[in-house]
Design a binder for these strands. Sequence first.
DNA 1: CGACATGGTAAGCAAGCGCTCATGTTCTGA
DNA 2: TCAGAACATGAGCGCTTGCTTACCATGTCG
Lengths: 197, 197
Amino acid sequence: MQQVGETQPTVAQQRVLDAAAACFGERGFHGTTTRDIAKQAQLSPAVLYVHYPTKEDVLYEISRAGHVAALEVLRAAAARGSTPTEQLGELAQDFALWHARSHAVARVVNYELGALSPAHHEQIALLRRQMEQVTREVLEAGLDSGEFAVANTSLTALAVLSLGVDVGRWFKTTGTWQPEDVAKHYRELALRMVLAH
Amino acid sequence: MQQVGETQPTVAQQRVLDAAAACFGERGFHGTTTRDIAKQAQLSPAVLYVHYPTKEDVLYEISRAGHVAALEVLRAAAARGSTPTEQLGELAQDFALWHARSHAVARVVNYELGALSPAHHEQIALLRRQMEQVTREVLEAGLDSGEFAVANTSLTALAVLSLGVDVGRWFKTTGTWQPEDVAKHYRELALRMVLAH
DNA sequence: CGACATGGTAAGCAAGCGCTCATGTTCTGA
DNA sequence: TCAGAACATGAGCGCTTGCTTACCATGTCG
């Protein structure tokens, strides 16, 4: 097979991707061997190369799918709210929720960009810029309506996203809080950062 | 020599540490070879083992010194302010400033914990708990005085630190903003998250 | 049936890895 | 002046790495 593009992965491919995402999320790309991935997937060491040409292509596919998912979370949240305040609240909440629930993939998405080939990195950078764009647009709408008051739109957009991103770093499923608790609280924190009063 | 403890590193040791920190910060611990470090330090591949028993010990020393420095930043900021509002402002500002200025070391500090040996990891975890402790105490002082109003002290402390931590991920020296600009803005964002009104 | 596509494996290769060791070289102090 | 400690190196060892190859099981379809 060895197709890697935008097509839907088969069941077997998804199994490799899931195993690799779990490993990459825990030990990082360079800390994970192809044998680790095979073991996690309960398959032979060679199975990776039946479906993907290189280990880096596996990373790219995980990163790409993860970024598409995260971007969709942001877009859906922004579309759901009827006011900028609602939009930013939903955005911050759902972004944090996704990072808590999918923290393995989230770690790959946010911390393994440097392991991508230059060509792949560029594709991913495109998606990341769109994520910032969506957030900035919600902030700008709130500034126009007078609901928000912030000194630096770009820097504040980064900060709103930072809150969510960093959840992926510290969140543990064995911890005290549920993903939903964290997300609800982060919605409030993000809104406080931007609201005028 | 091969001493790794709490003693001051010699000039030669510091040179190895600086080179390793630059490499680890850019490509991660597992993405960096001992030859990379030697090349960065403009020394022979074997030089690392003159001063440290293993590559992991170099990581530990960088991580330990980095955590001590970051903790000191937090403590100094908290000690400087005369009110909880001032304290948290200074804390958020200086923490972000440190992460912007020392973003290479900061990345090692925050993202390479998993590469430490269990024994070393435990030592570092001690320092990290103290960092959260300092932040929580400032928040609690502000709650007692009525200056702050937050629903969940621990989660809010995490969020305040998150803002700074994530600066280490995205900050580039070649970017638009200076470390001081980011830090000033982040002071405001952190204060907005916690202030009562 | 049998030709063939699909999905999987065991074994192993070349290269690069962390680390060692025998051997200088420089610095310090009696 | 020169012994000994401290610092540094070139060469290379044994092992692990990403990846390849030759081969096998299964199911589909004319």
